[in-house]
């Protein structure tokens, strides 16, 4: 984070932090380009590609057909042959259209070639529910990606991390999925100007507490932080860890916290069954069983496709209230 020091800081929404992150990458790396659906002329459907075409031109800001296999294949082939592409996959749900290029080519090429290929490709994609976009435009599929040896997966929860992680991902010599969240697009915070890194694979303690550890992914960090206030009112001090990176996962930070709190709750927006929370719970029990005073609990979406109706979607997405309820259960209150 040393790069971020001494830089002037201003309030910036998540969406513009993403935009700045992409711009910094294109400015500092001559072999970088961004390709994806609607990224050039239209500036991207979320607005985070605004101004890219004007600053960097057609060669480096590339509109593609609606062809996710082609787009992801472009990322594989171009990165293996000396470019540092940023591939924009408009919705995370679209990984289904290009899972072969992701899982069988991008993640494995280096290994299959005995270490003789390097794929410095960054994939930006948008996950999460909350806008009534229904079952095919709202999913959180990070567990699919984190299951792939060779792939790195990060989930920046706020504007500062979004910008810094895009820069770190593009400097990394491996394929990295940066999973953004549409519900966070308008959230503002202080973000430094210029270039800085947020390390991949390092969790961050967002608030300290002694009674239990909450490990949260992506936008669930904000729900966890909201629950902290509610818990304080009833005398419970929760420690919140923003996992930030799914693969690699920072087990050490989590275990160190549990040594202090002796209780853990894992929170994500993806469905509970087969979600990354199961893996984290298992790791906690392998690494910190002796420190636990209660079973590791999870708050996650129910095992249902993401519903359309706002009335149902509200029930579907884990909230600070459902976190408070589960915390009380964990503490046997």
């Amino acid at each position: 984070m040393s790069e971020a020091e001494n830089k002037s800081v201003r309030e910036l929404p998540y969406v513009m932090a993403i935009n700045e992150g992409i711009k910094e990458v294109l400015r500092e790396q001559k072999d970088a380009f961004i390709a994806g659906e609607d990224v050039a002329v239209a500036g991207g459907v979320y607005g985070y590609c605004t101004g890219l075409l004007d600053e960097f031109g057609e060669d480096r800001v590339v509109d593609t057909p609606i062809s996710e296999k082609g787009i992801m294949g472009l990322g594989v082939g171009a990165s293996a042959t000396g470019c540092r592409p940023i591939i924009d996959l408009m919705f995370m749900d679209f990984v289904g259209e290009c899972m072969d290029e992701i899982a069988n080519q991008m993640a494995k090429m280096r290994f299959m070639f005995g270490g003789k290929a390097t794929l410095p490709v960054t994939v930006l994609t948008m996950g999460g529910a909350g806008g009534s976009l229904a079952a095919q435009h709202s999913q959180s599929l990070e567990a699919w990606l984190a299951h792939l040896p060779g792939m790195k997966v990060v989930m920046p929860s706020d504007a500062y991390d979004a910008k810094g992680m895009i820069i770190s991902a593009s400097r990394d010599n491996n394929p990295v999925f940066v999973v953004l969240n549409k519900a966070s697009l308008a959230m503002t915070m202080e973000v430094p100007e210029g270039s800085y890194e947020v390390p991949l694979g390092e969790a961050c303690v967002r608030t300290q507490g002694k009674d239990l550890t909450i490990v949260a992914f992506g936008r669930m960090v904000h729900e966890a932080m909201a629950s902290v206030e509610k818990l304080k009112a009833i005398g419970i001090e929760a420690e919140v860890i923003d996992a930030r990176s799914v693969q690699p996962f920072d087990t050490e930070t989590v275990v160190n916290s549990i040594k202090k709190t002796h209780r853990a709750l894992v929170i994500h927006e993806a469905v509970k069954f087969g979600g990354i929370g199961g893996e984290i719970s298992a790791q906690i029990q392998e690494e910190a069983f002796d420190y636990l005073d209660a079973p590791v609990m999870r708050v996650a979406a129910p095992f249902s496709p993401v519903p359309f109706s706002p009335a149902l979607e509200k029930v579907y997405i884990p909230s600070s209230d459902s976190i408070v309820t589960k915390v009380k259960e964990t503490l046997a209150l």
């Binding site: 990322g75 594989v76 082939g77 171009a78 080519q105 070639f113 003789k116």
Partner: peptide, 30 residues
């Protein structure tokens, strides 16, 4: 495979190669 010879791999997936070749061609043009 052999990267030094410009050979981006045999591929166990039928149809796996062409998107990668297209990406490599993009790289050449870039």
């Amino acid at each position: 495979s052999n990267m030094d010879l410009g050979m981006l791999g045999a591929n166990g997936i039928v149809g796996g190669g062409p998107p990668i070749a297209m990406g490599a061609a993009f790289s050449n043009r870039f």
